[in-house]
């Protein structure tokens, strides 16, 4: 069949969507009054957005056979940077630009260390995970930073007022959707995107064919930092303050979402849309468990089981078709 690969991709996404719908259906049957409501769906989407932002770029990182453990710390740090800039009287645009620049700069540092010094990405980002977290705490003097200002940043992930219902989603979610489309198209239809896959698939071959491995990797990790910064922006919007201790462990949720979405940690495989659905699956389960009255520890066990099951199922499927 011509275009067979495209079909396979569609099939993969479709089966993920089906899994999500199934989970949604189960909780809807368990809690028919409160779970399958537009309001609840919107809440799940709003909660997912913070993690999903980072998952977009993490998809690139993991497809290139890398890993980025620093995204949670970057998100927290960026939320503090934005809060501090606002508190000092800068405008919201300046604050956002400063925060995102900070995130991208940390990502750039990750990328340079990984590509130039050839230190493994696990080690490099484990280091920045601690460094950035520490820097965020120092910047916030070990407390949350409250700018005490009413700016439009606060509404990026807020509920829409009744007269604004026509927008369907708050701006933050629209931004996520737009960026997801952009990331998906870039991965498939640009040289950069193809080089990311090539590096993850066979780095030796890519080098032999003249792919600029170093530059590509620097870009990948810079993007990861930038998108972690966007997570930080969303985090700020949700908390309305900068919190250096927020988003602890977020990097693992991001990685889990990407892996549930069909990416392989050994590189070469993964899809942007899959990653988004992966994150949605996790947050749907969390929301469902909460509404069903299950305590937090049960939610954690369920989420963990789902991650392992999803990956095991995927491997089984791959082995069957291979």
């Amino acid at each position: 069949m011509r275009r067979s690969e495209t079909w396979r991709g569609v099939l993969n996404t479709a089966s993920l969507l089906a899994a999500w719908l199934l989970i949604f259906l189960v909780f809807s049957l368990l809690r028919p009054d409160s779970f399958p409501t537009a309001r609840n769906l919107e809440t799940i989407l709003r909660q997912s957005t913070i993690v999903a932002m980072s998952a977009l770029a993490m998809t690139y990182v993991i497809i290139s056979a890398g890993i980025d453990l620093s995204v949670g710390s970057i998100a927290a740090c960026v939320s503090v940077v934005i809060a501090v800039l606002l508190k000092e009287g800068h405008g919201p645009w300046t604050a956002v630009a400063g925060g995102l620049a900070c995130g991208a700069a940390i990502g750039l540092a990750n990328g340079l260390l990984i590509a130039r010094l050839k230190v493994g990405p696990f080690i490099v980002t484990l280091g920045t995970y601690l460094i950035v977290r520490g820097a965020a705490k120092g910047l916030g003097q070990e407390q949350t930073v409250d700018p005490q200002r009413q700016v439009w940043l606060n509404d990026l992930l807020g509920s829409l007022a009744p007269e604004e219902r026509w927008r369907i989603f708050p701006n933050g979610i629209w931004l996520l959707i737009a960026l997801a489309v952009l990331a998906a198209v870039t991965l498939r239809h640009t040289r950069f995107g193809r080089h990311v896959v090539a590096i993850g698939s066979n780095e030796q071959a890519a080098r032999l064919c003249g792919v600029n491995i170093e530059a590509t990797k620097v870009w990948i990790y810079t993007l990861s930092g930038l998108f972690a910064g966007l997570s930080g922006l969303m985090l700020f919007s949700r908390l309305r303050l900068g919190d250096p201790t927020a988003a602890v462990g977020m990097e693992l949720e991001v990685i889990a979402g990407v892996v549930i979405g069909g990416a392989s940690l050994s590189g070469g495989e993964g899809s942007v849309v899959g990653s988004i659905i992966g994150v949605l699956i996790m947050y749907t389960i969390r929301s469902g468990c909460a509404q069903y009255g299950l305590p937090n520890w049960v939610q954690e066990i369920v989420t963990g089981a789902i991650i392992v099951a999803a990956v095991a199922l995927d491997r089984l499927r791959v082995r069957k078709t291979a």
């Binding site: 640009t190 193809r194 698939s201 890519a206 032999l208 064919c209």
Partner: peptide
């Protein structure tokens, strides 16, 4: 020295892809 995850065409032109502003000319 091939990338198993890329298509035949993508492998043949890997590193020398015809493109306009970075977008592949498929």
């Amino acid at each position: 020295s091939l990338c198993n995850h890329l298509s035949v065409a993508e492998n043949v032109f890997l590193g020398m892809e015809p493109s306009r502003m970075g977008v592949l000319e498929r």
